[in-house]
């Protein structure tokens, strides 16, 4: 899921508005600050009954609906462009489909590191793509073997793409829980 940059500022603004509305209702009920008594409800009712208010409400409804829809849709994952342009000379240009590289990197990691269930995701970064390899560790592994495998895979990618069109990151998570045994273990 993507994280729109609007999440934080918009959440803060809407949080403040909700807090203010809640505080107004609490003040209405318990008369803590006396703010409610100073509100002129006649003016509010006159405004709501005005002819222009219905059209203004309609326009606001359309704008808010579009904003809400955009905000929800903006977090849906977007497919990452598969191709990156390799260094070109003159009019020749070579595009590489990174989707063809990821399976090889997954196989290499699974073969060289004490991990299993390797998956990959691609992210666009400035000047190329990052292939993020996710794996689950074998609990019998040691730090040195994980580091050596990650170094080897980074080095091989850096050799193949010296200008950094493709980079690789290895993210290792805890071991997958073994499935429950059908028969009890006998000691």
């Amino acid at each position: 899921m993507r994280r729109p940059v609007a999440d934080r500022p918009a959440s803060a603004v809407i949080g403040l508005l909700l807090l203010a509305a809640g505080a107004a209702v609490i003040d209405w009920r318990f008369d803590l600050a006396g703010v409610w008594n100073r509100i002129e409800t006649d003016e509010v009712n006159t405004t709501v009954e005005a002819d222009w208010f219905a059209w203004a409400a309609l326009a606001a409804a359309v704008v808010l609906a579009v904003l809400a829809l955009w905000w929800l849709i903006a977090r849906l994952p977007r497919p990452t462009e598969g191709r990156v342009a390799l260094a070109a000379t003159g009019s020749d240009r070579i595009d590489l489909d990174v989707r063809s590289v990821a399976p090889r990197l997954r196989t290499d990691l699974e073969r060289n590191a004490p991990v299993d269930r390797v998956t990959s995701r691609r992210f666009e970064i400035r000047g190329g793509q990052l292939v993020s390899l996710h794996a689950h560790v074998d609990p019998r592994a040691d730090g040195a073997s994980l580091i050596n495998a990650a170094n080897a895979i980074t080095e091989s990618v850096a050799t193949a793409f010296p200008d950094g069109e493709v980079t690789v990151r290895v993210i290792v998570d805890g071991p997958k829980r073994a499935k429950a045994r059908r028969t009890p273990r006998v000691h």
């Binding site: 730090g143 994980l146 895979i153 290792v172 805890g174 071991p175």
Partner: peptide, 19 residues
Amino acid sequence: ADGPGDLWVSPRVVEALAS
């Protein structure tokens, strides 16, 4: 993790290996 490789391990990895 240390080294030139871009390796990241979760706290669960450290716990599993240490255990």
